Simulated scan of single mutants.
Amino acid sequence: MDTKALFSLEGRTALITGGSRGIGKMFVEGFLDAGCERIYITARKVDQVEATVAEFGDRIVGIPMDLSTVENCKALAGQIAEREDKLDILINNAGAAWGEPFEEFSEAGWDKVMDINVKSPFFLTQALHGLLKNAASPERPAKVINIGSIDGMRLNPWDTYSYHASKSSILYLTKRLAARLIRDNIIVTAIAPGAFESDMNRAAR
């Protein structure tokens, strides 16, 4: 079997949210190695996006954006649509975490995490639905991959209430999206990484 052909992403266009560092940046490296034609990355911090684009070259396009609002999800989709007529792969990787004792856990900590970890993947997928459908066929479906966490399946020892809730939610939201979007030849899956050493995961470091 030609494994290179099996895993090839030649001719594909992808969007990776949270693509400037951590797991998102790992996706960038892997997709480049697999021959992905063009990769869009987005994250909140302009300097991090620009640094990743500079590191990997002209197949990477950076669009800084805070995806915690529906308005910005639609804005990002609009910017992609100005450049592309289809999108083969969407990686919903952008994420946030918050830890605070139960007695003091704040609404801000709850909303920040749920907005970026649950609301954003749904509304960004919705906003990009047309471009994903344009890329999809029975022979070569479009793909949406939601990045969950093992913390959506078991407890960690910290007071991360909204993070646990959000990562449990994204796993079940993936099932619901998958059941709907398969009609459009879009396959929706989720992965649940463990404790990668990253800027976000201080405990793993």
Rank of each mutant, 00 (worst) to 15 (best):
S120R: 00
E55V: 05
S198I: 06
E100Q: 15
R205A: 05
D184R: 03
D111K: 14
L124E: 06
S120Y: 01
R21G: 02
S137L: 11
R176A: 14
A51R: 11
M1C: 10
K45C: 11
G78W: 05
E104Q: 11
E50F: 09
R154V: 14
L181W: 04
N134P: 10
A203C: 02
N92K: 09
M1R: 12
Q79V: 09
W110I: 14
K86I: 00
S162T: 08
L171H: 12
A165F: 10
G130F: 02
T13I: 10
R44I: 05
L32V: 09
S198H: 00
S168D: 09
E84M: 11
S166K: 04
V70T: 10
L15Y: 07
T52V: 15
A94V: 03
R205I: 06
D88M: 09
F122I: 14
N92H: 06
P138L: 08
K167L: 01
G24S: 00
E37S: 13
S198F: 00
A14K: 01
D88L: 10
R38G: 02
F122A: 04
L6V: 08
Y163A: 06
P157G: 08
A54S: 15
G99F: 11
R38K: 13
D88F: 04
E197V: 08
N146Q: 12
S166W: 06
G148A: 05
A54F: 11
A178M: 07
R180F: 13
S168N: 12
I80R: 02
F31V: 03
Y161Q: 14
G62W: 05
I39W: 00
L181Q: 03
V46H: 13
I187L: 12
M114L: 14
P157Q: 13
V53R: 01
R12V: 10
G152D: 02
N201Q: 07
I150D: 05
H129T: 03
I182Q: 13
T160P: 07
I191W: 06
A43K: 00
H164P: 14
A204I: 00
L76N: 02
Y161I: 12
P101S: 09
A179K: 14
I186K: 00
K133C: 10
Y172T: 15
L132F: 03
S20W: 09
G35A: 02
V70Y: 02
L15R: 01
G30T: 02
I91D: 00
V28W: 01
F31H: 01
I147A: 10
E103G: 06
I63Q: 04
F105Q: 02
K133H: 05
A136G: 07
E82D: 15
G19T: 04
T42V: 07
G78C: 01
F196D: 05
L173S: 05
L124V: 04
T13D: 09
V46R: 15
E84W: 03
W158H: 15
K45G: 11
P141V: 08
A14I: 13
N92Q: 11
E71L: 07
M65D: 04
R154N: 13
D85A: 14
T17L: 03
V46F: 08
W98D: 14
T189V: 15
D115R: 09
G62V: 07
S68T: 15
G130M: 07
F31Y: 15
